[in-house]
Design a protein around this nucleic acid. Structure first.
Lengths: 200, 200
DNA sequence: ATTCTCATCTTGGCGGTGACAAGATTGAGC
DNA sequence: GCTCAATCTTGTCACCGCCAAGATGAGAAT
């Protein structure tokens, strides 16, 4: 697999994805180009084409990686918290925000309908795996709220997802004062959705 | 002002903005180009340059128009509803969603930090005018919730804005089932934030 | 009325981009 | 050792935003 010579790179696909991820955060989506990535990797401008037939394919691969890290960010925050519904929800949402603020350009790409191809099964799978975390934290909350029906679960999940997704977007677009890391409490503001839905 | 000849267009600036707005929804932001707009308007590829020194300036002008329509969408929905806090909030949020679903590409542009120049006073003013509507609907809700302090008002507004902003983004990115127009009740789902914050 | 001035628009050209075509290189299977 | 297919290179195309230089003509100055 690792047959690297002056001519053959060895593992160009991985190199393109890794370099693409770091250049995405460095330059932003609009300034990112296949040719710049190829240049930094040290191959010719047409070399990526064999691995990614079009720019869209490479962006898809970046988004797949992104959804993996995204899911991990939520899960690792949850692991450090008590296994109570409200705490788990707060932790997951903090992981959501942490990822968005650490990789804002990647986060935006992952939800950019115009630049990604959601027909791609790999992207669908990665996206659904991340989505499953939201379902997981919404279920016990819906149960506590007495909304333990399919519609009830869906509405709680939709409300929670909307709120945190909007919060993330507004944050990285500079519309809200920057987040402060406040340990357990996920919001500097006195109001957070978990507390509103599940008052003690 | 309207000195139109074969050589001089007459009101090229307005024509570029109007054509730009319709081509934006038609083609999407990534496929929109100054040269395509100029071609449709019927001028040479460099004609826009005098009115908009760069593409960024034109996009700014489109966003300014967008924030105007956005504000109007919220206000007109509010006007058709009883002047009660929860009703006014539901109406404004429905206007928020209506704009986003009717002009998804414009909506995305208006919150695209990379493509706009928020140093532009015209854009700031238009954005703040739209934002003021959110403050207006959040104030009475915060009051009813017993959060009538600057921090309390800010947190209610932030929670409401995040929720509806995320809902709008998820909708136009195809992550939620499409909205149905349901008259007064703003959500098909049984849960909406106004009802959660202000239970009867 | 004639001339002048300058905003407006045109043509031409630059470097950069994604995509495509054709040819060079090389590892792996026979 | 030969062949072959995967991989990478060079070259080219149309399109893009932006810049420079020149053409046009409306309104002010005379």
């Amino acid at each position: 697999m690792a047959r690297r010579t002056a001519y053959h790179h060895g593992d160009l696909r991985k190199a393109l994805v890794d370099t693409g991820l770091s250049m995405l955060e460095e330059l932003g989506l609009e300034e990112l180009s296949l040719r710049k990535i190829a240049a930094r990797v040290g191959v010719s401008h047409a070399a990526p084409e064999h691995h990614f037939p079009s720019l869209r394919h490479l962006l898809n691969a970046l988004a797949v990686e992104g959804f993996g890290s995204f899911r991990q960010s939520m899960l690792s925050h949850m692991q450090a918290q008590p296994k109570l519904p409200a705490d788990q929800m707060r932790a997951a949402l903090r992981g959501y925000l942490a990822f968005a603020t650490e990789k804002p350009h990647l986060f935006r790409l992952m939800f950019n309908r115009n630049r990604l191809d959601w027909q791609d099964p790999a992207l669908c799978e990665a996206g659904e795996a991340a989505h499953a975390v939201l379902e997981e934290i919404s279920l016990p909350v819906a149960r506590r709220m007495g909304l333990d029906t399919p519609e009830g679960r869906a509405s709680v999940e939709q409300l929670v997802w909307s709120q945190i997704h909007g919060h993330a977007h507004l944050l990285i677009d500079g519309k809200l004062p920057p987040e402060v890391a406040t340990g357990c409490k996920p919001f500097a503001a006195p109001l957070d959705l978990a507390s509103v839905l599940l008052p003690d």
